[in-house]
Design a protein around this nucleic acid. Structure first.
Length: 424
RNA sequence: GCGGCUGUAGCUCAGCUGGUCCAGAGCGCCUGACUGUGGCUCAGGAGGUCGUGGGUUCGAAUCCCAUCAGCCGCCCCA
């Protein structure tokens, strides 16, 4: 029986892991600079956490979650996003007690049962940030700046920041009703999906891609003009900050994010280097989420970036050349008698802090030299009958091709010296 | 969940109006060209259930059906 990985999942092979690590390290370093600390939460949670926070009528909750009953009869879900678990952990562990704003970051797999496509997988990976405990728009600006900084740091340029405000519990219901009233006369001319949205989540009608719906809703009331005083002030302040930080963006009043917990700021980062799945990342403010999850009323904002999508763009833009991982020293052993001494030599080199390799397939010296070359070794040590008899090893510089005998006892220091760049 | 395209050696692909294809190329891999020496060149070699399962036919990688997987669009978003 040949097995294949479950649909929509990926094996990340050694050819790609260096790139993945570069992405993750870049993010970690940046988070450190911005004052965010890593948090790790379980890969599964009570199903209810997600239905409550994201909203039971959202696509993800209603048809994309990996949900199952465990042996104890608990209803469990593999996390489909990163925010709710972090907020749950924030509340459960009373991180608020530490005072100030909790600035957290995470790197996590997420699971959604969707039809796979390039850039859309059933197990995907996200880099994310959550800043909980302040409603100051400066925090919105910081979070967005961090996301944009990350892409700049990676060299990704073909992207744009799309911004909107989706209001708050004060102004959104009012706007929602205005929208419903506007659409009421022609609901039946809208597509099936929008007719459902009309009842459950009218705002989502705004970002329907169908030409017919777009036309009908073209003159719909503007959410930004319907914002309450507080939301409007917040949005204006954020825009002023972004302008001052010279972070370019476009306001798209049709941008609506997929989860119910968003309030005020909503943003997405899109790239035309991706296909239909063009969002590199997105996020927004969620001032009611902490309370919804059982904590005290506490504002928050965050974002999540897709690692797979970042990598697709990096490859698309030719920025994925991972510098080959090379080895410092290769030890060529000739014959069985040389195997043990070679192994000891390897160990000594490694313990001295160098990377060292040897052959385990009984290749000829020629074969071992080819291997040494392929591994990119700068130094090759040779150990055969002659060397064993004299208590020496042959040290060959692979670049200059110079080689000489070195007493076994002195090999490690000699190799270290030979590896010094100024010595080359 | 809907519509469409694709699936041949490790990789990239040719072959596909059915029959010298008991399937080929390039790259990669292995071996050899001074039986102790690399990156070039040359010569050999290993490696394929032609995604899988049925069917049509004297005969199928080539046609049909189903299934699995990937991809494109929709949807949704990371």
């Amino acid at each position: 029986m040949r097995y294949q990985r479950p649909r929509g999942t990926n094996d990340i092979l050694p050819d790609d892991t260096p790139l993945w690590n570069r992405v993750e390290e870049t993010f970690r370093t940046l988070c450190k600079h911005y004052g965010y600390h890593e948090i790790r939460t379980p890969i599964f949670e009570d199903t209810d956490l997600f239905t409550r926070s994201m909203g039971e009528h959202t696509d993800v909750v209603s048809k994309e979650m990996y949900t199952f009953t465990d042996r104890g009869g608990r209803l469990i879900t593999l996390k489909p996003e990163g925010t709710a678990p972090v907020v749950r952990a924030y509340v459960e562990n009373n991180l608020a007690a530490q005072g100030g704003v909790s600035k957290l970051y995470y790197i996590t797999p997420i699971f959604r049962y969707e039809r796979p496509q390039a850039g859309r997988y059933r197990q995907a990976h996200q880099l994310g940030v959550e800043a909980i405990g302040s409603q100051h728009p400066a925090l919105d600006a910081e979070v967005i700046a961090l996301a944009m900084h990350f892409y700049r740091e990676m060299g990704i340029t073909r992207l744009s920041l799309v911004l909107n405000s989706v209001g708050c519990p004060v102004c959104r219901p009012v706007y929602r009703e205005r929208l419903r009233e506007f659409a009421k006369p022609f609901v039946h001319e809208l597509c099936d999906a929008c007719q459902t949205r009309f009842d459950l989540n009218p705002l989502r009608m705004l970002d329907c891609k169908r030409e017919r719906c777009r036309t009908l809703l073209h003159d719909a009331p503007d959410i930004i003009e319907s914002l309450c005083e507080e939301c409007r002030t917040h949005f204006d302040a954020l825009r002023a900050y972004l302008d001052a930080l010279q972070i370019p963006y476009v306001v798209d009043k049709h941008l609506v994010r997929g989860f119910d917990y968003y309030t005020k700021t909503a943003f997405e980062i899109v790239s035309d280097a991706l296909g239909a799945q063009n969002a590199l990342g997105g996020g927004g403010r969620y001032d009611g989420l902490v309370e919804e999850i059982g904590g005290p009323p506490t504002p928050g904002i965050g974002f999540a970036l897709g690692i797979e999508r970042a990598i697709i763009v990096l490859k698309e833009l030719g920025l994925a050349q991972a510098k080959r991982e090379t080895v410092d020293v290769f030890v060529a052993a000739l014959g069985e008698d040389a195997t043990l001494p070679a192994l000891q030599l390897l160990q000594a080199l490694r313990e001295a802090g160098m990377s060292a390799e040897m052959d385990y397939q009984r290749r000829s010296l020629k074969g071992q030299m080819k291997l040494a070359d392929r591994l990119g070794s700068r130094i090759t040590l040779m150990l055969g009958e002659e060397e064993l008899a004299q208590g020496v090893v042959t040290l060959r510089d692979m670049v200059t091709k110079e080689q000489r005998f070195v007493p076994v006892d002195d090999v490690v220091p000699q190799v270290i010296r030979a590896l010094q760049p100024e010595h080359a």
